[in-house]
């Protein structure tokens, strides 16, 4: 058997324990799919695999037990998924009959977002799809996830780029009855950014996380939702070498800025990646090049707006025994 493993890995298959048998990873951008796609996945698993699927940590599906010899047929069977979940959202894939065109940049995962969740500040599915359109197909090893609010249910803090939804709370003092529900709650569950002064509420913008809890707690709609903003946490990772949580890079920035910084990060990788290695994960490139270099390149052409703030220095932490 003559199989180019480098090639099949880029095609979203993997080398498994069992010789001659592979497994296919199916992307689900934003973790949301039409249930019609499940029929296609089921059919692939039953026809070519072992009749099971594994739900991946990145909200995709992995179909195990596929004979490597069947890859061409599987790739044809995958076409409706590429059409329905990639082409349909604007991802350019030249030939739908050859399977996934890349696997380095992982599925963009998302929490359920504001179509369902009361806390989420934006439609995470939509943003995940916009990011997918921007960065896929791509061989660089990058993990991105988007989450609706600072509760971070999707674990944006474990990603190279984690997008966290924020909302600017707008206060109408004349509607406030001074019940202090927002103040007490902010101290208890969020950042203690609110205080009472002359029976009304004062918000400390430096402390505010933009979680929107004050809006949710307000009985009179004295607090309402203003503009949507985003916080970007970067260079979080797992892995044996030096795992660590992502740290805040930028906050109170627009969706446009999020997309631009994400695109710029790919330019940064292109420029600084160590090509002598089989692959280099973006976080280690930033470690090597230094945050100031990343910061400068990531912010090229990015409009931060009046509220946008970017960190000058990030104490990443992580393992110290290296």
């Amino acid at each position: 058997m003559d199989i180019n493993t480098k090639k099949i890995i880029k095609n979203a298959y993997r080398v498994t324990k069992k010789r001659g048998v592979t497994a296919l990873r199916i992307r689900v951008p934003g973790g949301r799919l039409d249930v019609g796609c499940l029929d296609v996945i089921k059919n692939i698993a039953e026809t070519f695999g072992d009749g099971t699927v594994h739900i991946t940590t990145r909200q995709g599906f992995e179909v195990p037990g596929i004979p490597m010899a069947k890859i061409p047929q599987v790739n044809e069977a995958v076409a409706p998924l590429l059409a329905g979940m990639e082409s349909a959202i604007g991802v350019e894939i030249a030939d739908l009959n050859h399977g996934y065109p890349a696997a380095g940049t992982r599925n963009v995962s998302a929490c359920i977002g504001n179509s369902v969740c009361t806390f989420a500040s934006y439609n995470t599915t939509d943003l995940a799809r916009k990011i997918e359109r921007l960065i896929y197909p791509n061989d660089f090893h990058v993990k991105i996830a988007v989450t609706g609010c600072p509760n971070d249910c999707i674990k944006a803090h474990m990603q190279d780029i984690g997008v966290i939804g924020m909302v600017l709370p707008v206060y109408d003092a004349t509607r406030c009855i001074g019940c202090e529900a927002c103040v007490k709650n902010c101290l208890k569950v969020s950042s203690g950014a609110l205080n009472m002064s002359n029976y009304k509420v004062k918000r400390d913008h430096q402390r505010c996380l933009g979680c929107g809890e004050c809006v949710l707690k307000c009985p009179t709609s004295a607090w309402t939702r203003g503009e949507k903003y985003y916080r970007l946490v970067i260079m979080g990772r797992t892995g044996k070498r030096n795992p660590r949580l992502a740290r805040t890079f930028a906050r109170w920035i627009s969706e446009e800025a999020v997309l631009k910084i994400t695109a710029n990060m790919y330019g940064f990788i292109e420029k600084h990646i160590d090509r002598s290695l089989p692959k280099e994960h973006v976080g280690y490139i930033v470690d090597r090049a230094g945050l100031p270099v990343f910061r400068e390149e990531a912010l090229q052409g990015v409009g931060l707006g009046p509220l946008g703030r970017v960190e000058d220095y990030i104490p990443f932490g992580g393992y110290e025994n290296r």
Partner: peptide
């Protein structure tokens, strides 16, 4: 957009 939940009206 002024409902308590995101993208809802009041």
């Amino acid at each position: 957009g002024k409902g308590a939940y995101s993208d809802t009206d009041l």
